[in-house]
């Protein structure tokens, strides 16, 4: 059989197998509203084990986190019409009584520090304080352009779980940043 020499530097079969384990949806590439729309509908299809509340939670979380990748990824594509599409990875997994939703993208180290601080604040607050924080930040956001921060508070409130963040350096200036959240199938 004909072989293409530099097809991949990894085995697609191994990659496929890796994704077989508990993974319902995975996507890597540019993100915009059309791709979000397609993946959003996929989520609806694959999360059949959860109740309707769990489904709507995953959808809400997906919308906020995918939007963040689109807008804030340090890796991006520009379309012919000049739009910038952030690149990143989205994975939805199923583990026992919960779904996990993970997004990851490359970030500039200087940009990510305030985001990490924000995540640490979010994780340190109980639910009532987190709701108060959302109210406060929503007021502030009216005067600022950056709305990504309310998105993260919303994600933590919707998931009812902490934001599991990870930062892996890829160069002196950049790191791979990921956020994972867990959503119980029996959402309340």
């Amino acid at each position: 059989m004909e072989k293409i020499d530099d097809k991949y530097d990894f085995s697609l079969y191994e990659y496929h197998n890796l994704l077989q384990q508990n993974i319902l949806v995975s996507y890597k590439g540019p993100i915009d509203e059309r791709i979000m729309n397609v993946i959003g509908e996929n989520i609806e299809l694959v999360t059949n084990d959860g109740n309707d509340k769990a489904k709507s939670k995953i959808f809400k979380i997906f919308m906020e986190l995918a939007q963040n990748v689109w807008l804030y990824s340090a890796e991006s594509l520009s379309t012919a019409s000049g739009r910038k599409l952030g690149m990143g990875t989205l994975v939805i997994g199923e583990f026992g009584d919960a779904y996990t939703f993970v997004t990851g993208n490359v970030v500039r180290n200087t940009d990510i520090e305030p985001v990490i601080e924000k995540c640490e604040i979010i994780n340190s607050l109980d639910r009532d304080s987190l709701r108060e924080y959302r109210r406060e930040q929503r007021r502030l956001a009216g005067t600022k352009k950056n709305s990504g921060n309310i998105g993260l508070i919303q994600v933590a409130l919707t998931a009812e779980s902490p934001l599991d963040i990870e930062l892996t350096p890829v160069s002196d200036e950049e790191s791979f940043f990921s956020i994972a959240v867990k959503i119980k199938k029996t959402g309340r």
Partner: peptide, 13 residues
């Protein structure tokens, strides 16, 4: 039935 966080700011307005 659904509104994102950007919309929620406008709803508060």
């Amino acid at each position: 039935s659904y509104f994102n966080t950007s919309s929620s700011k406008c709803l508060v307005d």
